[in-house]
Design a protein around this nucleic acid. Structure first.
Lengths: 107, 107
DNA sequence: GACATATCTCAGTCACCGCTGAGATATTGC
DNA sequence: GCAATATCTCAGCGGTGACTGAGATATGTC
C-alpha cells in the first residue's frame, strides 16, 4: 500500500543505500557503453565491430570495455583462429544482477 | 538462441538506438536523484525531507527534482494544510516505462 | 504588516569523465 | 625478420554536470 504524506514533514528519514545501482546506472549512462551492452545481447563481438558500429576509435571502445570488465558485466575471450581478436561476451549472471539492482530503484 | 562469433569480424553492424535508455540511466546515475526515486517508492515526500535525508541543501535537491520533473518521472502537488510544501510523488506510468527502457538495454 | 519557512531559479565554480594522441604489446601473414 | 592488424594503456585536454551562493516568490505565523 502507498503511504500518504503525514501532517508534518518528517526529519528522521534515512536515505536508502543506492550506491551499487548508481554506479551501474553511470555505466549505462553513456551511449558507447549502453550500445555495447545492447549489441552483446545478440551474441559476442570483437572490439573492431563495436568501433565500426559506433563510429568510434578502437582505443576509445577499449577504454569503455575496460570499465564494463571492471564492473564484471562483460569478459574477454580469444579464439584459436585469430589470437589478435578480443571477443567480448556478456556475463549473464552479472547482467541479471544489474537488472535486479536497477529495478530495486524503480520498484 | 545466442549467435556465436563468425569466422571474421563483421563491418556492417548497426548500433541500436539507446538514446532514451541512456538519458534515463544518466538520471539514475546520481546518488541524490537515485535516492529520491527510491524514497518515493514508499509514498510522497516534500523537498525538505529529501534534503534532510540526503544531507544536501534544499536548492540542490530542488534542482534534482526539476530534472526528474522534466523527464516526467515525478510531479509536484500542494496540500491545503500548508501551501508552502511541495509534495513530490512518482508518476508510476513513467517509472514503469523507464523500467522497460532499461530492461531493453539489458534484455 | 513583519518575519519565518519552503521552494525555486540561475550564474559561477570546480571536479569528473569521455575523447584524443602517442606509444607499447601480441599475433598473423608475407 | 618485417610489416600489418588488433588491442591495450595512459597522460592530457575540453566539455558537461553537480554544488554553491545569492536572490526572488509564495505561503504561513505572530
Amino acid at each position: 500500500m502507498t503511504v500518504t504524506f503525514p501532517t508534518r514533514p518528517r526529519r528522521d528519514l534515512v536515505a536508502p543505500d543506492v550506491a551499487h545501482a548508481v554506479s551501474l546506472a553511470q555505466l549505462l549512462g553513456d551511449r558507447s557503453r549502453a550500445t555495447i551492452l545492447a549489441m552483446l545481447a545478440d551474441g559476442p563481438h570483437c572490439v573492431c565491430e563495436f568501433a565500426t558500429a559506433l563510429g568510434a576509435r578502437e582505443n576509445n571502445v577499449s577504454n569503455h570495455l575496460a570499465r564494463l570488465r571492471d564492473a564484471g558485466l562483460v569478459r574477454a575471450t580469444h579464439r584459436a583462429e585469430d589470437g589478435r581478436l578480443a571477443i567480448y561476451e556478456r556475463d549473464e549472471a552479472a547482467v541479471a544482477a544489474a537488472r535486479a539492482a536497477l529495478f530495486t530503484l524503480l520498484r
